[in-house]
Design a protein around this nucleic acid. Structure first.
Length: 901
DNA sequence: CCAATCACG
DNA sequence: ACGTACGTGATTGGT
């Protein structure tokens, strides 16, 4: 038996749009409905396995009812622009997938669906119509099924209606469904119906008499009353209503023979669109279904070489050609041992395989050699490439690198295309060759998953069967690095970010490399001892909690904990979340007086965190030389900050005394001390400068305690009479401003009413008159341009600003206010880092920059160099930027990180 | 693989 | 009538 699947385009697009968060791609185009639609469609195709398939749309975007608007029945809202712009794209995608998109001027999608269903049934098809609209139930027969997807929490459920199911659910046949609607009307569809008749009456009448005509004929039998009288008086309207409510199944549709035949949906064209809209979750479906053929066929020209002669030939060729730019991609596994490297100069791309005679050592030195000869190597992750090179150096060479830095000793003039691409859009999750290739070069190349499937790169490198795939992957990396770099730079230049790229980000790659290489010494024994101390107390608390709860359970499970506290123990005041009770610290703290178990849980949580993340977590990261080496990520944050991973050294505890003790196990090497310098109020100083507000600038210039000064102005209190509470609240206001103020957030933070919080904010803007104008300017500027910038021109796109969703847009506004401030501060400390690092080397000092924690630098300084280094750090940090206010730092020396900060 | 929690700036 | 502070990463539990 053949099957025909029909989809109600606008209705399902609408479901998809409201069922998903507001997804956008990196261009800021809304894509949630496209994704949701195609996803839902594929699910139906999988479930139904139809052999014929079509999608119907209204010619013009209809209006829609939505939960949100139920209160205003009859005033259907027009389609929001975010959805509207996606409709043509959905249709484009469908056409690309070879799906017939059927629209007819003068006919609604309902009529098209009904007509197709009728024709299909006549031809002996089983028909399924997918729609969110219950009006289509009138089309149900024994062979025509109406499928209505319902979004429930925990996924979508589908209600299926054959004729019998309609009867069961509504007590009337599908055809009678029309009569019911004719009586009750539907204001949102402009079907008047009969006054005074609602769903109840309509259903009862039709169930009894079968149609409005029969009702009319038997009107005498009915109980006299207002409603019956209305029915008699408004008979004409009822008839008209029935006509309006009836879906016309005789639309003059002419379809080419066989055009609804379902063929391969996963076409090349659709794949391109999928990439274009960055529908990442859908890509695997296309990749599994299309053969590995891609638009770009350069892979055939890639050469794998594994003889000295071939390698020497390539480098000789390179030298002869006088080319000074080479795309490069080094392949290495977990052990950091180089397996090979791809090199590309565009026309010629080779993969040098470290098999046979060619050793990693030879290859590595060859790369260093050409770099030092002035060839600019372009990597996807230069910092990592340098680490790989470092690993295969001799002890003497390693010493030289540690002393003189990676720039001088490894790759003096290399560049990083990922770092460059990050500047163009810092909000992406990854900067891969396939992504950049499609964006900058307009070509489709295989992504890692296309070549290796689920196999990790590490494993692929060990698998001889995947040598071909590894070669292709590496070569494309090298090729795209070569071919796209100039274009990326051209765009950077166009967008005014060349200065940031050349003078901040690229030098920073080398600075971060040296920092990562240095690492920081850990007292392993002290760390273990600290962990043991925690364990003892954790066990005590565990027992205490179990006995108070009356049973053992997993305290680490918020789900179990919530049940124990708020159900078994009946503690009042539990707040609910989507999934259950909230057991977050701020919620529990409010209840801590209620029951002593709460205090134990809070303490348990704190200690468990310290033990798992810090005591155990850090211990697992200590290298064989007793030092711990973090990776600083330069292409992660949306604002321009760096981040730190494996381990994260930017969130080592400090606020609580017990946590702070961890810092005692970080210590400088023999003959050294730590110098720790942090900017004082850098974000507020940046704010003062960027806003140009004289009062804020004045307060900083006067060297005043800035929160006290704000308190004095906001609370209208003489500076010296500001209370601690006032200062604390003013501090929260200052934070709030930097975060993109909202009365609600501020109120929650300081525990006052929203009205009062709003007053503080109002007072703040009176106190600092230019601030309001400045922040408003950021918002309107961002809205107009689609992005905001830091003082140095670093961009952050904010597509949320043009959302019609209130919450999303509001979020965009906060981001527009915060990013320029946080980002400018990030720019400044990056400049300081590079300058401190470079000057330490230039002045021949042995002291080393080890860490950056957003507004803080940690230097391991030789005791003998201390005075000079202190001066150097202060100069470079304070002079990193020239602002309307001074950049001040606090610097401390210490024998541990705890002491120095 | 995601949500909740909590550590930092 | 919505339901919120900005930016990160690691761990844990649960699907």
């Amino acid at each position: 038996m053949s099957k025909l699947l029909l989809i109600d385009g606008h209705s399902i697009a609408n479901r998809a749009f409201y069922g998903l968060p507001d997804l956008t791609n990196s261009q800021g185009e809304h894509t949630g409905a496209i994704f949701g639609f195609i996803n839902m469609m594929l699910k139906f195709i999988d479930d139904e396995q139809p052999d014929n398939f079509a999608v119907a749309f209204d010619v013009h975007a209809p209006t829609f009812r939505h939960k949100m608007f139920e209160a205003y029945k009859g005033t259907r809202k027009p389609m929001v622009p975010e959805l509207k712009e996606q409709i043509p794209r959905i249709q484009e995608m469908l056409r690309a997938m070879g799906v017939p998109v059927i629209t007819m001027e003068g006919w609604e999608a309902d009529d098209i669906l009904g007509t197709l269903a009728r024709i299909g049934e006549e031809k002996g098809f089983d028909v399924t119509i997918v729609s969110g609209d219950r009006d289509l139930l009138q089309l149900a027969t024994e062979k025509v099924k109406i499928s209505i997807p319902k979004t429930k929490k925990g996924g979508t459920e589908i209600e299926n209606y054959f004729a019998a199911d309609v009867k069961e659910a509504y007590g009337v046949t599908p055809k009678q469904f029309i009569d019911v609607k004719a009586l009750q009307g539907d204001t949102s569809d402009n079907i008047p119906g009969v006054e005074g008749i609602g769903p109840k009456t309509a259903q009862t009448w039709i169930a009894q008499y079968g149609s409005i005509e029969e009702c009319h004929a038997h009107v005498d039998e009915m109980k006299k009353g207002k409603v019956v009288q209305n029915f008699i008086d408004q008979w004409d309207i009822a008839v008209l209503s029935k006509e309006l409510a009836t879906i016309n199944v005789n639309a003059p549709i002419e379809l080419e023979e066989g055009c609804t035949k379902l063929e391969n949906l996963f076409t090349e064209e659709a794949y391109l669109l999928c990439k274009r809209y960055e529908l990442k979750k859908l890509l695997p479906r296309f990749e599994a279904s299309t053969t590995t053929k891609v638009q770009d066929n350069r892979a055939e020209t890639f050469k794998r070489i594994y003889d000295f002669t071939d390698v020497e030939d390539f480098f000789a060729e390179l030298k002869k050609s006088g080319k000074d730019f080479v795309g490069a991609s080094i392949m290495a596994g977990e052990d950091k041992r180089i397996k090979g490297a791809a090199l590309s100069v565009g026309d010629s791309t080779v993969y040098v395989d470290c098999a046979g005679f060619i050793t990693p050592d030879y290859l590595g030195h060859k790369l260093m050699e050409i770099s030092k000869a002035g060839v600019k190597l372009c990597f996807w992750d230069l910092k990592n490439a340098m680490h790989l090179l470092y690993e295969l150096m001799s002890d003497d060479e390693k010493q030289a690198i540690l002393t003189n830095g990676g720039k001088a000793e490894i790759f003096p003039t290399a560049v990083d295309v990922a770092v460059a691409a990050y500047l163009l859009n810092p909000t992406k999750n990854a900067y891969t060759a396939d992504d950049v290739a499609s964006e900058m070069l307009g070509i489709i190349i295989p992504a890692q998953a296309d070549l290796f499937g689920k196999t990790k790169l590490n494993a692929a490198l060990e698998d001889d069967n995947l040598l071909e795939a590894v070669t292709t992957y590496a070569c494309y990396n090298a090729y795209v690095a070569f071919a796209a770099f100039e274009k990326v730079i051209a765009q950077i230049k166009e967008e005014g970010m060349l200065d940031i790229y050349e003078n901040i980000e690229m030098p920073l790659v080398y600075t971060l490399f040296d920092m990562e290489l240095q690492g920081i010494a850990m007292d392993k024994e002290a760390l273990a001892e600290y962990g043991n101390r925690l364990s003892v107390r954790i066990n005590e608390l565990e027992q205490s909690i179990y006995s108070q709860a009356g049973e053992e359970f997993n305290i680490n499970s918020p789900k179990q904990l919530g049940v124990i506290l708020f159900e078994r123990m009946g503690i009042e005041g539990g707040k609910k979340t989507k999934t259950g009770y909230s057991t977050a610290a701020d919620v529990l703290e409010e209840l801590s007086a209620t029951n002593p178990i709460i205090c134990d849980i809070l303490e348990y949580r704190q200690l468990a965190k310290l033990k798992s993340t810090y005591a155990d977590g850090l211990a697992a990261c200590v290298d064989s030389d007793g030092r711990i080496r973090s990776t600083f990520m330069q292409t992660v944050t949306a604002t321009g900050r760096i981040s730190s991973t494996e381990p994260n050294l930017q969130n080592i505890p400090i606020r609580m005394e017990l946590g702070r003790e961890i810092r005692k196990v970080f210590y400088p090497k023999d003959g050294c001390i730590f110098l720790d310098a942090d900017y004082s109020q850098i974000e507020l100083r940046v704010l003062a400068h960027m806003s140009g507000d004289e009062n804020l600038i004045g307060a900083f210039k006067a060297g005043q305690d800035i929160h006290r000064s704000t308190a004095s102005l906001v609370f209208n209190t003489p500076f010296d009479e500001v209370t601690d509470l006032q200062r604390r609240r003013a501090k929260a206001v200052n934070f709030g401003i930097v975060y993109g103020i909202s009365a609600f957030g501020l109120a929650k933070d300081i525990g006052v009413g929203r009205k009062e919080a709003q007053e503080y904010i109002d007072n703040y803007f009176v106190a600092y008159p230019k601030m309001h104008e400045f922040l408003e300017g950021l918002k309107s500027d961002g809205k107009e341009k689609g992005y905001v910038t830091t003082m140095y021109g670093r961009r952050r796109p904010i597509p949320e600003l043009s959302s019609s969703n209130f919450m999303t847009r509001q979020f965009g506004e906060r981001v527009a206010m915060n990013s320029p401030i946080q980002g400018t501060a990030a720019d400044i400390i990056k400049i300081a880092m590079v300058n401190v690092h470079d000057r330490l080397l230039k002045e021949g000092l042995k002291s080393k920059l080890l860490l950056q924690v957003h507004d803080e630098l940690l230097v391991e300084a030789l005791e003998s160099e201390r005075i000079q280094v202190e001066k150097l750090i202060a100069e470079e940090m304070e002079n990193a930027a020239k602002l309307a206010v001074n950049l001040e730092i606090d610097m401390n020396a210490g024998k541990t990180w705890a002491e120095a900060h």
